[in-house]
Amino acid sequence: MAEKTINPLLKSGLEYGPIVAFFAAYILLKDRVFTFGGTEYEGFIAVTAGFVPLMILSTLALWRLTGHLSKMQVVTLVLVVVFGGLSVWLNDPRFFKMKPTLIYLFFAGALGFGLLRGHSYLESLMDAHLPLSKEGWLVLTRRLVVFFLGLAVLNEFIWRTQSEEAWVYFKTFGLTAAVFLFFMSQGSVFRKYGVSKEDDEG
């Protein structure tokens, strides 16, 4: 099914709205404790309990409006539901904090597997249509594998050694900025291996 075009602001809101909502709710509720069924839950767990269904609803809305979800969106949603659910069910925030690590390890592993076969899965994985030659895709994929592994290690370091609030800031802003800066720094790859649309089709 071809992807339907929707308002870019609406699309961005559905993709990033839950993350912004998670951050705002955490800032408001981080010092509160909630009692449910005789069990006390800290603010982080309560916010996670709200984030999981919000993420499900926003992803379903995005699929309904566009008729399409990327592999990255599907994998991310599954890991949010599984590890967010475990954190709430077991009343243990560590599972949710490990989620970014597993996401980056999964994509590094998938891309690395493709490289071992001499292929780049990057374009289909990210639903990208960048005008790169085959060699360019391989170069970019190798760099992204290393980058994802680095983010996985960094996330483990942050949540295990820093405060919970520091990790929330890192997850909300640091990881997003890191991915943005990575692609901004790859200008030399796009210049060296870039091809025109006509050449790519030919």
Rank of each mutant, 00 (worst) to 15 (best):
Leu77Gly: 04
Ala177Tyr: 09
Leu154Ser: 10
Asp199Trp: 12
Lys11His: 10
Val139Thr: 09
Glu15Val: 12
Thr39Trp: 05
Leu57Ser: 08
Phe23Arg: 01
Arg142Trp: 01
Gly17Glu: 09
Phe107Glu: 02
Thr66Ser: 09
Met55Cys: 06
Asp92Pro: 02
Leu140Arg: 00
Phe173Val: 06
Ile6Trp: 13
Gly114Glu: 11
Glu3Phe: 05
Asp199Tyr: 13
Lys197Ala: 14
Glu156Phe: 04
Lys30Ile: 03
Gln162Glu: 14
Pro131Val: 08
Pro53His: 12
Glu42Asp: 15
Leu69Cys: 11
Trp159Pro: 00
Arg32Leu: 15
Gly38Ser: 11
Asp31Pro: 01
Glu201Ala: 10
Leu149Ser: 01
Gln186Ala: 08
Ala177Asp: 06
Phe36Asp: 04
Gly109Thr: 04
Ser70Tyr: 14
Met55Arg: 14
Pro131Cys: 08
Val153Ser: 09
Leu77Glu: 10
Gly37Thr: 04
Val52Ala: 05
Tyr26Cys: 02
Gly85Val: 07
Ala49Trp: 07
Lys30Ser: 14
Gly85Glu: 10
Met55Thr: 11
Met98Gly: 03
Glu42Val: 13
Ser185Thr: 11
Ser124Phe: 11
Ala61Cys: 08
Phe190Val: 03
Gly136Trp: 03
Trp167Gln: 04
Val47Gly: 00
Phe183Cys: 08
Leu90Trp: 10
Ser58Gln: 04
Trp137Ser: 05
Tyr104Leu: 03
Phe106Asp: 00
Tyr193Trp: 11
Arg64Ser: 12
Ile56Asn: 05
Gly43Pro: 08
Asn7Arg: 05
Phe34Ala: 02
Val146Lys: 09
Val33Pro: 00
Thr176Phe: 11
Pro100Val: 06
Gly187His: 07
Phe190Ile: 03
Ser120Ala: 12
Trp167Asp: 05
Glu135Leu: 10
Leu138Gln: 11
Gly50Asp: 09
Leu54Met: 13
Thr76Asn: 10
Leu10Gly: 08
Tyr26Ile: 01
Thr48Met: 12
Lys134Ser: 15
Glu201Asp: 12
Leu9Ile: 15
Leu86Thr: 01
Gln162Tyr: 13
Ala108Glu: 13
Asn91Asp: 10
Leu102Ile: 12
Ser188Glu: 11
Leu175Thr: 15
Lys197Leu: 15
Leu65Arg: 07
Glu3Asn: 10
Phe157Asp: 00
Gly109Ala: 12
Lys171His: 11
Ser185Asn: 08
Leu57Trp: 02
Pro93Lys: 14
Lys134Trp: 07
Gly174Thr: 05
Tyr16Phe: 15
Leu144Ser: 07
Val189Thr: 14
Gly112Met: 08
Phe96Met: 13
Met1Gln: 07
Phe44Gly: 00
Leu116Trp: 14
Val75Leu: 12
Ala21His: 02
Phe113Gly: 01
Ala110Arg: 03
Met184Val: 07
Phe51Trp: 10
Lys99Phe: 06
Gly112Ala: 14
Met55Gln: 12
Arg117Gln: 15
His129Ser: 15
Pro100Gln: 12
Val74Leu: 03
Val78Ile: 15
Leu60Thr: 01
Leu132Gln: 13
Thr5Val: 15
Lys197Glu: 15
Lys11Pro: 00
Lys11Cys: 02
Met55Asn: 06
Gln186Ile: 00
Ser124Trp: 13
Leu149Tyr: 01
Tyr169Leu: 09
Gly43Phe: 06
Lys97Asn: 13
Met1Tyr: 11
Ala166Trp: 05
Met126Thr: 15
Leu125Trp: 03
Gly13Asp: 06
Ser163Val: 03
Lys99Trp: 03
Phe23Thr: 00
Ile27Trp: 07
Leu54Arg: 02
Met184Gln: 14
Lys11Leu: 14
Gly37Ala: 11
Gly37Ser: 07
